[in-house]
């Protein structure tokens, strides 16, 4: 190994000094998430405003971690919640049990549950990880903690990601 080799190696180091840094400045700038990334679930609605979920529990049956709990109820014909006979009166997912495999999405006959792109789900207490319908329906942005903090500080929820379009996620806008 000669002095020339050392100079060559140091040259590579010197070259990197003048390149753009590869670091994603995450909390300040949004993370670029790939369209097929699977994050927090969204419960979608039809364009008419009715919920797509019909409370069939197929997602709960397909879930390998048994993280989903669905309780169905009969629709009121005058004021239906979903277009079918029944709707999900309780829809809960334990986000800590969930392994984000997307099998619920595959099993769903109406395309009601789709895994979105949100990943900022870290929280402090185990009991706060049960996400209900009001945490997952379209229009709700951010994790439980993000919404809690936004309410306390009186500002909007800021989700630190940007992503390409995905046709399954209709109505969800990041």
């Amino acid at each position: 190994m000669s002095v020339l080799d050392i100079a060559k190696g140091m040259g590579v180091t010197l070259g990197h000094l003048f390149k753009r840094p590869v670091t994603v400045r995450y909390p300040e700038q949004p993370v670029d998430v790939k369209p097929r990334f699977r994050g927090r679930h969204h419960l979608l609605r039809h364009p008419s405003g009715l919920e797509k979920c019909i409370g069939c529990s197929l997602c709960a049956a397909a879930c390998p971690a048994y993280a989903i709990y669905v309780e169905a109820a009969e629709n009121d014909p005058d004021d239906p919640v979903s277009p079918g006979e029944r709707y999900a009166s309780i829809y809960e997912i334990n986000m800590l049990r969930c392994i984000f495999c997307g099998m619920c999405e595959e099993a769903c006959p109406t395309g009601a549950i789709v895994l979105g792109h949100e990943f900022e789900l870290a929280d402090f207490v185990y009991q706060d990880f049960t996400y209900g319908k009001d945490d997952m329906l379209v229009g709700v942005m951010g994790s439980k903690w993000q919404r809690r903090e936004a309410t306390q500080k009186g500002r909007d929820v800021r989700v630190g990601l940007s992503s390409g379009p995905r046709p399954e996620l209709e109505g969800v806008d990041y």
Partner: peptide, 28 residues
């Protein structure tokens, strides 16, 4: 639940969580 062995302060969901999710957990 690891909380039955040591007292846990932050839980990070994900399987596995993205590196950014861990960065977020450190911020938490």
């Amino acid at each position: 639940n690891v909380n039955s062995v040591v007292p846990v302060d932050i839980y990070v969901p994900g399987c596995p969580p993205r590196p950014e999710a861990l960065v977020y957990a450190v911020m938490q």
